[in-house]
Design a protein around this nucleic acid. Structure first.
Length: 861
RNA sequence: GCCUGGGUGGCGGAAUUGGUAGACGCAAGGGACUUAAAAUCCCUCGACGCUUGACGUUGUGCGGGUUCGAUUCCCGCCCCAGGCACCA
């Protein structure tokens, strides 16, 4: 093939050839270094979007690069196939979630293949298949056995109208997304994974993953939220018993003047039992419980409480402290009870002012005394302890330890640690998910399904209406079973697992994708491939998915299935793909194809350009990858995504940028076509012959480019600068006058440049490169070619420019041989015409020489 | 409020360890080719000033500092994005 660049023909040809030759099929090879490159697998929503294209292009470049570097590269792809949108489609269009999902997978798979990604499709995994989730059910049983999976009551969002559980994202400002009615809470028995059992290890390894972005680690650490403090005991004033609190501020204990208990805490109703206020308090508690989560965490939620007609004693001052139920105290953090120090905590301060409770200052700033009567807010800075008995005069931060020790010595408290992280609720009252393998028996209670009976298969013959609770609960042949323990009739668990469970181990499954023996992972293979060397995905998964996957890996490790402590050695979080939105006064947001010459195609009115935001269907600021592939080809789409921004930054879409990318590929194609006949039977230059200047420059540039591109890809994943380096090389190639047909030396130098360009661009735009590689006479597939190496001696400049500064300001430059001595360069600098003139009448204080860079002459006026 | 990032030409971005700010691309302008247009190839392109140069001044959010030298390090402030948010 020659002549014009026709991306479609070339791309389809090579995609076919790669598939026919099984080019990207990979098996374990102990003689080669492995490299496991993983991109976050997609939810099969129907079509790939630019976010996928960007993510998978970045991954493909690294996979193809590592492959050329001689690694045995595992680069798999699969489908995060369970989830709510499939059920929504079923409700809205009457199509079964399974059918919908499989159609979407077929579509998207075709699109990914059309992008030319180097996946080993033999390892494709789809999480909605029993062959996949049966192992997840097995792991669940083992976790249940170890107490890592357990049941407890917990509340969910509940729509009374639709009689169904709503996910958080189905609650829109407190209302049901389907019927618009108010959403309440419902308490259900639900399944949890005991992620808190691994909290210390999860936290510890945050500092042992240098290949992760700092900010992701920070987010995870904050999410885990470890805090050091004390558990202190406050005896009841008039009865036996005591209230325990967790505090990180034991330094303020002498200022604790009242006690707060979370309204939902059982202690609240216990304390008022039989008292005249019992009904009133009970109403208050019920009112608080009704407020949904959104409301309770909003900024405007006013602090409210109710006195419980009970007192406890401050353990150090023996003062009576009134006890309140409060709406802002969290029931599931610490003990659910909080000692209130209104002078030094803003929340307690507001509460004390509202209910007229006493204030005692215990921390004094160094410069001014505090008067409780005049305070308008809590004093939360550091200071010196006052009104604090034997601790008076100490700096409050230093007293933390002494006071903790004191409490331990008198047996009224102990140092403890609290975490923000809660156990992972995995129950979903939904159909399209992996069934939890449990049977509920009236007589035996919760009974695990025997391993031999796995998988518990999701039944296919269901109707989804979106009303009346979980479809599985209305499916007699699914729920009705016999108890594995007593053999009596019993009911199956109808909850399915959170889809984050599937995505917590899919990367293990890729290692032995079709292994059908217990435990579903072939240890030898998993040990060969795991951990993932490079994981790539969106920053939106910085916390949940990545933390759950880390946890699940540790659980599987402790089951003896995995050998690594952490699943992902290196993590790259790519930025979003953004574009400006366009709006017509009549027709609202418009898709790019609905705009022509800045006007709406429906009404010809001018279109308003909005700000640049993440591409989304609702803003219609989306570009369809299919459109790009058809008009420009996969290679242009790939190179544009890589050139427009470094991977971790947001990418701003630019149609002109796409044109530019296409132009570059054409330009590269043309110059190589130009030389095709001349270099076809020429070998790349190898000799040490003296070359004329022009060829020497080209050759030097070639080797410099190999060096630059290798460094940019290897060390930093900065494909944008790698591409610009190749652009420079192509520009230099254009500058070289075309040599005579028999000038074999010149042509061999050009051949070396051309081969380098093709090799260097191959991971980025593999189709055009394969085609050119074949055109210049190669028989073997380029994907298998080794990455080019450079000769530092050839890459080295023999003349360098030295900048001459006076007092740090650029004044002149000189060219010297690269090997020139420092002293010679200094004297040449001082002798430079411009410098001599500028130095007249000035006294030289010193001369700084930075090797191969500059001379700075420091003078005094 | 707290914790992270980030702020560089008309635009996307480059400057890898404190050492020539603006690589490469886009847009714009000019030229060549062409009957013409498109395409292509070549050149110019931060701002200001004048003596139009191998010119001077200025310039990386703002104000200070360290240094021979700061886009880069330190302190204070402003703005933008993301995460967390009654976690006691």
């Amino acid at each position: 093939m020659s002549g014009k660049y026709h991306p479609k023909d070339i791309e389809e040809k090579w995609q076919r050839r790669w598939e026919e030759n099984n080019t990207f099929k990979v098996t374990e090879d102990l003689n080669k270094n492995k490299y496991y490159l993983l991109e976050m697998f997609p939810y099969p929503s129907g079509k790939i979007h630019m976010g996928h294209v960007r993510n998978y292009t970045i991954g493909d470049v690294i996979a193809r690069y590592k492959r050329m570097k001689g690694f045995n590269v595992l680069h798999p792809m699969g489908w995060d196939a369970f989830g709510m949108p499939a059920e929504n489609a079923a409700i809205e269009h009457g199509i079964h979630p399974s059918v919908w999902t499989h159609e979407n997978i077929d579509n998207m798979k075709a699109q990914l293949k059309r992008m030319g990604f180097s996946y080993d499709w033999d390892r494709e995994v789809s999480t909605c298949e029993p062959e996949y989730y049966r192992w997840e059910q097995l792991f669940f049983l083992w976790m249940y056995e170890k107490g890592l999976a357990y049941k407890k009551t917990s509340s969910v969002n509940w729509c009374y109208q639709c009689k169904t559980v709503l996910a958080n994202e189905q609650v829109e400002s407190g209302l049901c997304w389907r019927c618009g009615k108010e959403v309440g809470e419902k308490v259900l028995d639900q399944w949890f994974f005991r992620i808190t059992a691994y909290v210390e290890e999860l936290l510890e390894y945050c500092d042992k993953l240098p290949g992760w972005p700092e900010r992701v680690m920070t987010m995870q650490k904050n999410w885990i939220g470890k805090s050091y403090g004390c558990e202190l005991t406050f005896p009841m004033a008039d009865t036996d018993g005591a209230i325990k609190v967790f505090t990180t501020r034991q330094d303020t204990i002498f200022g604790a003047t009242f006690m707060l208990i979370a309204a939902e805490h059982p202690l609240v109703m216990e304390l008022v039992k039989g008292k005249s206020i019992e009904k009133e308090v009970s109403d208050f508690v019920e009112k608080i419980k009704k407020h949904d989560k959104m409301e309770r965490t909003s900024e405007y939620y006013e602090k409210e409480g109710m006195f419980l007609d009970a007192y406890c004693l401050n353990p150090v001052t023996d003062q009576k402290m009134p006890i309140f139920a409060a709406n802002f105290v969290l029931a599931d953090y610490g003990t659910g009870c909080v000692m209130a120090v209104p002078t030094h905590d803003q929340r307690d301060f507001e509460f004390a002012r509202k209910y007229d409770l006493p204030l005692i200052v215990v921390i004094q700033p160094k410069d001014r005394p505090l008067d409780p009567a005049e305070m308008t807010e809590a004093y939360i800075e550091e200071g010196i302890l006052v009104n604090s008995g034997q601790f008076n005069g100490m700096e409050n931060m230093k007293a933390l330890d002494s006071i903790a020790a004191y409490f331990e010595s008198i047996g009224k408290g102990k140092r403890t640690v609290q975490y923000r992280l809660r156990d992972w609720g995995i129950s979903r009252q939904r159909y399209w998910g992996a069934p939890i393998p449990i049977v509920n028996c009236k007589k035996c209670g919760t009974v695990p399904v025997p391993e031999a009976d796995l998988p518990v298969v999701l039944p296919m013959n269901v109707t989804l209406t979106g009303e009346g609770g979980s479809p599985l609960a209305n499916h007699p042949s699914f729920i009705e079973t016999t108890c594995p323990s007593c053999g009596q009739p019993a009911l199956r668990e109808t909850d399915t697992m959170d889809t984050f469970v599937e995505s917590s181990w899919y990367f293990d499954r890729y290692c032995s994708a079709h292994y059908d023996e217990k435990p579903g992972l072939d240890k030898a293979k998993v040990d060969y491939w795991m951990p993932v060397d490079q994981y790539i995905g969106g920053i939106e998964h910085a916390i949940m998915h990545l933390l759950y996957a880390r946890f699940y890996s540790k659980v599987l490790r402790d089951f003896g299935i995995l050998s690594c402590d952490e699943p992902f050695t290196n993590l790259l979080t790519q930025g979003m793909v953004c574009k400006e939105s366009m709006k017509c006064a009549t027709h609202g947001y418009l898709f790019p194809e609905e705009v022509e010459d800045g006007k709406c195609i429906h009404c010809k009115k001018p279109v308003a350009i909005g700000k640049t935001e993440k591409m989304s269907k609702s803003l219609k600021n989306v570009v369809d990858p299919n459109y790009l592939i058809q008009n420009y080809g996969a290679d242009t789409t790939r190179i544009f995504c890589l050139f427009a921004a470094p991977p971790e930054k947001d990418l701003e879409w630019s149609d002109q940028g796409v044109d530019g990318a296409f132009r570059f590929l054409n330009r590269t194609w043309r110059i190589i076509m130009d030389y095709l006949e001349a270099v076809k039977n020429i070998k790349p230059f190898e000799g040490g012959d003296q070359l004329p200047d022009e060829l020497k420059t080209l050759r030097r540039k070639t080797h410099q480019t190999i060096k630059k591109v290798t460094g940019d890809i290897e060390d930093r994943f900065h494909f944008n600068t790698a591409i610009s380096a190749v652009m420079e090389l192509v520009n230099v190639l254009y500058q070289v006058p075309k040599p005579a047909d028999d000038d074999r030396t010149a042509l061999s130098v050009i051949r070396e440049s051309i081969e380098s360009i093709i090799l260097l661009l191959n991971p980025i735009v593999p189709h055009i490169c394969e085609e050119l590689w074949e055109d210049i006479g190669h028989r073997d597939v380029l994907a298998d070619a080794p990455w080019p190496s450079f000769d530092p001696a050839i890459a080295a400049e023999d003349e360098i420019t030295i900048v001459i500064q006076i007092n740090g300001k650029l004044r002149s430059r000189i060219n010297v041989p690269a090997s020139e001595e420092a002293e010679t360069i200094k004297s040449l600098a001082a002798a430079d015409d411009k410098i001599v003139k500028l130095l007249e009448g000035k006294q030289v204080m010193k001369v700084v020489y930075v090797p191969k860079k500059l001379v700075n002459i420091v003078v005094r006026e």
